[in-house]
Design a protein around this nucleic acid. Structure first.
Lengths: 173, 173
DNA sequence: AGGTTTGAGTTAACGCTTGAACTCAACTCA
DNA sequence: TGAGTTGAGTTCAAGCGTTAACTCAAACCT
């Protein structure tokens, strides 16, 4: 199937970088999932959904915007929000201004759950990532992460800019 | 449920770093999976299993070692190797020296498939990661990745050292 | 208006991952 | 020897994610 092309292999600096990155990737994913599952009974993705809603005015987003913010497909989000709704952390209503859209709204219970959960999660992120890194490395990581994320999906806005905290009342994380 | 503790939130440098890292994480995963699924009909994890076997003397590993190298659970590996075996890329035999162990062996067909697949995969890695980064950033990434990976699982050896290429005949990647 | 199109969101079928039970080989220690 | 233990690997049930169909509201177009 493969046409003969692309003879550019990874060189002696790129190879260890790739191994290290891949390892970090897979371990971070499973470690953070495990922490949240153990301490809060939710997945990392579910946490991301709640967190995204918590950071936005009215704690309300259209399903499709929420899907983009959470880096997930719409069907996945629909199922996840369905579960979160069953637990009372989110509720859905059709957008009053346009019935085609559905608004997902973080409930007070959901906010409370997040307030309860966030410290442990942030603690895990700190333990796994930031405690191991120097200040300079944190800044390097920001640049590297943004560049890679943009290389993969140039259409999506730079993640750091997209989710910049506005000044008012977004205490979590 | 949460006891009142851990008031250390992410500061103004850590927060963007975390957003950027999380975004890179999730996008890299799905982009690489998509490339391999499209071009080779296999998942990133399956590719990792074949690649791990290809880099090792005799192209043979015990299931448990392979699970560790692939960062996957043993049940998962058992199923995946089962599928790879059905496709003729891997075969299994009980370890002749100790019947408790099972050896997974990369077949010639599996090697050929990997030779066919690797250039495209390496191309994607290069496109998504290394083409966007400076040489200095590549070195920074190695350090950051290794530190984080080790912070998460201090028991496991440093990934870069673990999978260092030996000098002989490991051309892929 | 009526028929079509567009796009958001949900539903359904299928495959994969996970966690718990289970099997089995080798070792231990009486 | 032989009962119990340990640890590797598999199997099974349950849950989650993905893809493709489907529903439905609004806009568009004569």
């Amino acid at each position: 199937m493969g046409t003969e092309e692309e003879p550019r292999w990874l060189d002696d600096e790129e190879w260890p970088a790739w191994v290290a990155l891949a390892s970090m990737l897979v371990r971070l994913n499973s470690a953070l999932d495990a922490q949240l599952q153990r301490d809060a009974g939710m997945s990392h993705f579910e946490y991301g959904v709640l967190a995204a809603l918590s950071e936005v005015p009215e704690r309300t987003l259209r399903m499709s915007s929420l899907a983009m913010l959470s880096d997930g497909s719409l069907p996945r989000l629909s199922q996840v929000v369905g579960r979160l709704e069953k637990r009372g952390w989110v509720r859905r209503t059709p957008d009053p201004t346009d019935g085609r859209y559905t608004l997902a709204i973080l409930t007070d219970d959901g906010w409370a759950k997040l307030v309860d959960t966030a410290p442990g999660h942030v603690g895990a992120v700190r333990q796994y990532v930031f405690d191991s890194l120097t200040r300079a490395q944190v800044r390097q990581l920001t640049n590297i992460g943004n560049r890679v994320a943009q290389a993969i999906d140039p259409g999506a806005p730079c993640p750091t800019e997209l989710r910049s905290r506005s000044a008012d009342s977004q205490p979590l994380r």
